[in-house]
Computed example of a mutant assay.
Amino acid sequence: MHFIPEALDTYVVNHTEKEPELLEQLTRETYQKILQPRMLSGPYQGRVLSMLSKLINPKNILEIGTYTGYSALCIAEGMRKDGELHTIDINEELEDFQRKYFDLSPYGHQIHQHIGNATEIIPNLAMKFDLVFIDADKPNYPTYFDIIIDKMNPGGVILSDNVLWSGKVIEDIKKDDLSTKALLSYNKMLVDDNRIETVLLPIRDGLTISRVL
């Protein structure tokens, strides 16, 4: 989803750091072998995630929604050498694909995969987080926030993807559109919560940065 003219978007991409070769390989194989390859973060957003992680320099990272591992590898780039990244996905069929690329990266030994329902897995993770990236099923975004907010370190950052949902958040909502309804509630929840400060960026399909006070 582009919210600026295509020519200007191309200029932005051309003047942004290029993705590492390993991520290019991951993208190619995802498009060759995996359903719904549009779910990849992509090179531009990936560089945004990488830069944010490097600025935060997190020790403990949580990702909700792994898919083929692209975004996990991006946010791992800013992780401390003694850090851990815990990534959760419901689809067990992608586990080996993810692991292959994690192990090809410098961060493989620091990345821990969890397969199953994030609402059940997160409460059992005995740590607090400096960085969380939410990119999973939209109807559960408010639930994920409620679960993770008390597991954040002060100054920690929650990144939420797809919060503009192809612009549907400002359109008339269809009765059966649970995802858009959930995102509307979620976006309002973030801006109203006095435990965090929030900025919504029109990057790709919308990316919210929420800093824990």
Results as ranks from 00 to 15, higher is better:
residue 167 G to D: 12
residue 22 L to M: 05
residue 191 V to Q: 06
residue 135 D to Q: 04
residue 46 G to R: 09
residue 38 R to E: 14
residue 72 A to Q: 02
residue 124 N to R: 14
residue 44 Y to P: 07
residue 52 L to H: 00
residue 88 I to A: 02
residue 29 E to M: 08
residue 161 D to M: 15
residue 23 L to S: 04
residue 199 V to Y: 07
residue 190 L to I: 06
residue 40 L to Y: 04
residue 106 P to G: 04
residue 102 F to W: 13
residue 25 Q to T: 11
residue 90 I to Y: 14
residue 84 E to N: 08
residue 160 S to Q: 08
residue 119 T to P: 02
residue 110 Q to C: 09
residue 74 C to E: 09
residue 100 K to H: 10
residue 135 D to H: 00
residue 9 D to M: 11
residue 37 P to H: 07
residue 43 P to Y: 10
residue 141 Y to A: 13
residue 109 H to P: 09
residue 87 T to L: 02
residue 102 F to E: 04
residue 66 T to G: 10
residue 145 F to D: 00
residue 73 L to N: 11
residue 100 K to V: 05
residue 29 E to D: 13
residue 54 K to G: 08
residue 49 L to M: 12
residue 133 F to H: 15
residue 107 Y to I: 02
residue 130 D to A: 06
residue 69 G to C: 00
residue 152 M to Y: 06
residue 45 Q to I: 00
residue 149 I to A: 14
residue 43 P to G: 07
residue 192 D to Y: 06
residue 186 Y to N: 09
residue 59 K to Y: 11
residue 98 Q to K: 01
residue 192 D to Q: 12
residue 147 I to C: 03
residue 21 E to G: 03
residue 84 E to C: 07
residue 100 K to T: 12
residue 81 K to V: 10
residue 209 I to M: 12
residue 9 D to G: 06
residue 185 S to H: 04
residue 31 Y to S: 06
residue 197 E to A: 12
residue 130 D to C: 05
residue 200 L to R: 08
residue 62 L to C: 06
residue 51 M to K: 11
residue 141 Y to N: 09
residue 199 V to N: 13
residue 168 K to G: 02
residue 107 Y to H: 12
residue 16 T to W: 01
residue 187 N to V: 13
residue 103 D to W: 00
residue 11 Y to R: 12
residue 30 T to M: 03
residue 92 E to Q: 13
residue 164 L to W: 04
residue 129 F to C: 01
residue 86 H to P: 06
residue 41 S to I: 11
residue 130 D to G: 09
residue 162 N to L: 11
residue 43 P to M: 01
residue 189 M to F: 13
residue 31 Y to T: 11
residue 22 L to R: 09
residue 174 K to L: 14
residue 126 A to T: 15
residue 152 M to E: 13
residue 209 I to V: 15
residue 97 F to S: 08
residue 114 H to S: 06
residue 97 F to P: 11
residue 145 F to M: 10
residue 71 S to W: 02
residue 153 N to C: 08
residue 78 G to E: 05
residue 86 H to Q: 05
residue 173 I to W: 04
residue 192 D to E: 15
residue 119 T to R: 12
residue 177 D to P: 11
residue 27 T to F: 00
residue 166 S to N: 09
residue 122 I to Y: 08
residue 4 I to G: 02
residue 90 I to G: 06
residue 165 W to A: 04
residue 50 S to R: 07
residue 30 T to K: 00
residue 58 P to A: 05
residue 169 V to F: 00
residue 3 F to M: 12
residue 104 L to P: 01
residue 20 P to D: 01
residue 4 I to L: 04
residue 140 N to K: 13
residue 65 G to R: 01
residue 47 R to F: 00
residue 18 K to L: 09
residue 35 L to D: 13
residue 114 H to L: 01
residue 66 T to C: 07
residue 17 E to I: 09
residue 19 E to D: 08
residue 72 A to M: 02
residue 43 P to I: 06
residue 128 K to G: 05
residue 152 M to L: 11
residue 110 Q to H: 15
residue 49 L to Y: 05
residue 165 W to R: 12
residue 197 E to P: 02
residue 19 E to R: 07
residue 157 V to Q: 10
residue 75 I to C: 07
residue 117 N to D: 15
residue 92 E to H: 15
residue 176 D to A: 12
residue 4 I to V: 15
residue 74 C to L: 00
